[in-house]
Nucleic acid binder design. Structure first.
Length: 421
DNA sequence: TCTGGGGTCCTAGGACCC
DNA sequence: TCTGGGGTCCTAGGACCC
């Protein structure tokens, strides 16, 4: 049997775990630059704050209803996520971390799966203060569906629901609307509705042939999984990333090339760092620029440039050199740019590099990068940078409502004042 | 003034090879 | 009446996820 453990309103729950003032209060977490809402607890949902709500459009209701807001604090969420995942290993050696707030685990045989789910939920809450929902079933897609039941009926399920009989599986599929199936998005929803299927059950009644032809092998796998035949693979080995990207919207729009060069340098450096962390090198660098598409009356421009490198590398210097070349190719003066990104692809394992007969990187880069990474890890805050980066810290994200890094920074650890009673 | 960021997988079609 | 056949690799774009 598989279980999916899904943290409820994860970012909001992380904030609440360390700040008792937030208990039972509506709370929304904002995206980078405090632009829009990316997580909200159930109290905020009940007040009608939708996912993706732009902050400036909801200012009024936020003040009126006294909704608490926080800037996103990824050091905190990333650390809390690691803790939750680590704790799950107490229930099974086989854990697939699916996203920052979700994991699948393979459960050992049990007489009472419902109770296993409750045990997991209680344990995670006790150790971290994070509430989770647990769905249990013979396949991954069915466990996701069981999790939907938990979310829709929190009182009846108390946080855990298990599909452990054929009757429950059929009942679940007949209840589950087509667009709530994991893996069915907008496109396939329309396709299936046109075919007359409204529920997961009706989807499974279509022929394999039709599903394969209209929804590709991906759709067919999903159908098998819903039929109870485990077809979507369980992957507990952590895979290296195949694409590494650093992309941001700016806090303002601007046209000044020097400014944009500096950001591209910083994005390139961040990408190269992520690349070295998984001991990969890249063969391809892509850079893109976009103006603000919400400003209809301004001159629009979006462009990208893809450069293939002469040799695979993970050197910040080389990657930035090519990123800057790409930028030169696409930058147009006079455009107000709002967003840019650096994306690395063609990733290969660094230790399995093909050396070229003629073109190879200066070996000094390797030593320099190793030294830079060591120093930056030891002292934190990325103290060692390229000269082309933002040495003056002339720009930074707008994060007006940022909470402390309770778990990853010594100066932010909560201090208890104990008095004798 | 102000609307996120980072991924995965699959398919079709073109280029190229013998 | 009637275009050769079989294959690989790469890329752009679509669809979906959290």
């Amino acid at each position: 049997m598989y279980a999916i453990i899904d943290c409820n309103s994860f970012y909001a729950s992380c904030e609440r775990a360390f700040d008792p003032k937030l208990i039972n209060k509506p709370l929304a977490i904002l995206s980078n630059n405090d632009g829009c809402v990316i997580s909200r607890n159930k109290e905020a949902k009940a007040l009608g704050i939708p996912m993706g709500a732009p902050l400036f459009k909801y200012k009024e209701i936020i003040t009126q209803k006294n909704i608490q807001i926080r800037s996103s604090n990824y050091s905190l969420y990333g650390d809390m996520s690691e803790r939750v995942m680590k704790l799950l290993e107490n229930f099974s050696p086989e854990v697939e971390v699916y996203s920052i707030d979700e994991a699948f685990i393979k459960l050992p045989e049990s007489e009472d799966y419902q109770q296993v789910g409750l045990d997991i939920k209680n344990y995670i809450f006790q150790c971290t203060g994070i509430p989770v929902s647990v769905g249990i079933a013979p396949t991954k897609a069915l466990s996701k569906a069981a999790n939907n039941i938990v979310k829709k009926f929190p009182d009846k399920t108390n946080g855990s629901y298990a599909i452990d009989t054929e009757a429950k599986r059929i009942k679940l599929l007949k209840w589950l609307p087509i667009n709530d199936i994991w893996g069915i998005g907008k496109g396939n929803k329309v396709r299936l509705q046109n075919k007359g299927a409204q529920t997961a059950y009706e989807f499974t009644q279509l022929t394999d042939d039709w599903v394969k032809r209209n929804m590709s092998i991906v759709g067919l796998r999903l159908k098998k999984d819903l039929e109870g035949e485990p077809t979507i693979l369980f992957e507990d080995e952590v895979q290296n990333k195949k694409v590494i990207a650093t992309t941001r919207s700016f806090e303002f729009t601007f046209s000044d090339k020097q400014n944009i060069k500096e950001r591209i340098a910083t994005f390139a450096a961040r990408c190269a760092e992520k690349l070295r962390m998984q001991t990969s090198s890249c063969n391809v660098v892509m850079v893109y620029l976009k103006s603000d598409r919400n400003k209809k009356n301004e001159l629009q421009h979006r462009a990208n440039r893809i450069l293939t490198l002469p040799y695979a590398t993970n050197s910040t210097l080389t990657i930035n050199e090519f990123a800057q070349k790409a930028l030169d190719d696409i930058y147009k003066p006079g455009i107000k740019y709002k967003r840019a990104g650096v994306i690395l692809t063609g990733l290969v394992q660094t230790d399995a590099l093909q050396l070229d007969l003629f073109k190879n990187e200066n070996p000094k880069h390797k030593q320099l990068m190793a030294t830079m990474d060591t120093l930056n890890q030891k002292y934190g805050g990325r103290k060692i940078k390229m000269a082309s980066q933002d040495l003056q810290r002339t720009w930074k994200m707008r994060q007006a409502y940022l909470s402390p890094e309770y778990t990853t920074k010594f100066s932010d650890i909560i201090v208890l004042n104990c008095r004798t009673i």
